[in-house]
Each structure stands twice: as C-alpha cells, then as structure tokens.
Simulated assay, not measured.
Amino acid sequence: MTSVDVHQHLWTPSLVAALRARREPPFLDGWTLRLHGEPPFEVPPGDHDIAGRAELAAADGLGRVLVSLSSPIGVEWLPAAEARPLLDAYHEGSAALPEPFGAWAAACVRDVDANAAAKDLDRGFAGLQLPANALADAAGYARCAPLLDLLEERGLPLFVHPGPAPAESAGPGWWPAMVPYVQQMHAAWFAFRAFGRPRHPGLRVCFALLAGLAPLHGERFAARGGGAEADVDPGVFVETSSYGPHAVDATVRALGAEAVVQGSDRPYAQPPLNPGFGLGGAAAYAFRVANPQRLLTGR
C-alpha cells in the first residue's frame, strides 16, 4: 500500500499566471503575494518547482502527495466571476501534475455552484477542500450544503483548511498561522459536530492542523453538556501539519490512532522526520498508509 501526504501546496504555472493577471488582492506581483488580511509574502520560486518537489516526495518515501489550493489566499471567497478564472487555472494545472501528485478540488463558497464543482471533480480529484471559515457555523453549513451533498453522493471526502485571515488581523509574521488559522479550525471542528454531521451522516472529513487542537477539549465539551468525551466519529480525521510528537500524542489519546493522517503543509512546513511521531512503526503505518486509505476511499 502507498504512503500518503494529504496536505501540500504546489502552485502550477497556470495558477501563477492567473494570479499575476489580477490587479486587486489576491494577486502576485512577480513572486510577491499580496492579500487582503496579511502582509506581502515573498514566494520562493523553487518551492513550486514541480520536478524538485517530486524528488522531495520520493526522498520522503511518499507514493502519493495531495496538493490543494492555498485557501488563505481567499480565492474561494471571491465573487464567482472573479473566482472562476483562478479556480479553472488551479484545476487545469493540478490535474496535469505528474506522479506522485494528486489534488483536492476547490470551489467558490461565496456563490456556491454544485454543478461547477461536479465538473471539476469529474477530472479525478481526490475530494473537495473548503475553507474553515466557510464551515464555522450553521449558516455556513446551510450555504455549502450542495457541495457536501455532492461529496456524499460520490463517496468523496472533504478537506477543511484554514481560510483567509481577517483584514483587521495584525501582529508579527507568524500571527495569522497561530491565531486566526487555529481559531478557524477550532470553530470548524465543533461546527461539524453540531451542524455538519447531523445533515451529512455519510461524509468523510479531514481537518487540517489537528483541527487547531480542538479534539483536546473533549473534557470541557463533556463538562458543558456537549456529549461524551470518548464519542469518536469514525468518519472524521485530522492531519498533522506543523505539529510534532507532543501534540500528535495528545490527539491520539483523545481520538485514537485511527483518526490521524500525515499532512505536512509543504512548502510552508516540512514532513516529520519521524513519521510515527515517536509512537512506533505501527503508528507510522497508520498515519501514512492505512488511515489515508480509509479517508480517501472509505475502505
């Protein structure tokens, strides 16, 4: 069976060209990314060299790497007329990536169009990524319901990734990753339990960055009447990007090893040197092989 990393980012030439064609955020000025809610970011071109990234994947022992649109850029939140050229460029480039790459599809969440998402998924994408701030409450789940219905009908998973940081967010360069992104994932985790799972009983879902460590709040959840602390959903997974042995160990204690899959967020973070995070070879196999297989196929 194949070792999988479910969370990387790789900007193809078509996406780069589409971002450079814009004059309002989000856009690329050369290799400087300009967004609404974050300071300008200098993108190292080598991070998105396709051949180089394939070599890194091979060195990591990965047989499959799933790339996704960088949701903090904010493409999914643009009006459909602005989002569609960028989404088309992303899907075109990602669908043409060589082995070992696969990809998550993306969709506009401001103007939801399930028919457009269906056509994108027809190209062989692993599932659909949506920004966490689109799935943070009941209204978000109502708005995105046609997209989630589509995934359920096709037996494909949902990947929840941090969305754009608020425009008023301020602080040092690490602030968006440590505060808004984590807060979004925390909210999305509990919103899925409250609003997503009741409406979508068959949907498999994976939360980026260990769901902002929301699973570690099980004791408080139980104390405040939310439900049993050990009430684990077998269709829910979390990926490990940017975290290490302490956080992964605690998450395994909260959810069990069957809920954890490897995600690295490369090039913004690196895959773990120890894929078992100090928990042994069986854990490494579960995180990289068995659990991603269940997430992606349901088997």
Rank of each mutant, 00 (worst) to 15 (best):
D122W: 08
Y285H: 14
A134Y: 04
F27R: 14
A191K: 06
A254E: 08
G281E: 15
P271T: 10
D231G: 03
P146M: 12
R299V: 12
A21D: 09
G276D: 03
G256R: 05
T297K: 12
P26N: 05
S14R: 12
V67T: 07
F277Y: 13
D29M: 02
P131H: 07
L210T: 00
F192A: 12
F125H: 01
G74Q: 00
V182C: 04
Y268M: 05
A51N: 06
A145L: 08
S169F: 13
A167C: 08
G212S: 07
P45L: 08
G298A: 09
A254K: 08
L158F: 08
A228N: 01
Y285T: 15
N274G: 12
A269C: 06
G127S: 06
L210R: 00
R143L: 11
R253C: 09
L295D: 06
Y181C: 02
A139P: 04
L56C: 07
A59R: 15
D120L: 09
D265E: 05
T240S: 09
G235D: 06
F190S: 04
L130C: 11
H246C: 05
A257D: 07
K119S: 14
L66E: 01
G235R: 10
P39I: 06
W174H: 13
A105E: 06
V289S: 13
L130V: 09
L209I: 04
Y181S: 05
D149W: 10
R224V: 10
G256P: 05
P201R: 02
R193H: 07
F192V: 08
L148M: 11
Q8Y: 09
S68Y: 00
L279T: 04
R143E: 02
L78H: 01
A18K: 01
L273H: 13
L210Y: 00
Q270A: 14
V260D: 09
A254G: 11
A58D: 05
P44T: 13
G256I: 06
S3M: 15
D233Q: 03
G196S: 04
L147D: 07
R123Q: 14
R294K: 12
F27C: 13
A223H: 14
A96I: 03
G155C: 10
A188T: 02
G63R: 02
S242F: 06
G155V: 14
P85Y: 10
A145D: 14
A282M: 07
A17N: 05
L255C: 12
A269K: 03
P131Y: 04
E153K: 08
H217Q: 15
P245I: 10
W104A: 01
P100S: 00
A96E: 04
L15P: 04
F41E: 09
H217K: 11
L97V: 08
L28W: 11
A211Q: 02
A96L: 03
L10E: 09
W31M: 14
E239Y: 01
A89P: 05
H186W: 10
G46N: 13
E76Q: 13
Y181Q: 10
W31I: 11
H36C: 12
G173Y: 14
A230C: 09
M178P: 01
V67D: 00
L279F: 03
G212D: 01
E24S: 15
A167Y: 10
I50T: 15
L78P: 00
R294E: 05
A167P: 04
V67H: 00
R84H: 12
V112T: 02
D5A: 02
L66S: 02
A116F: 08
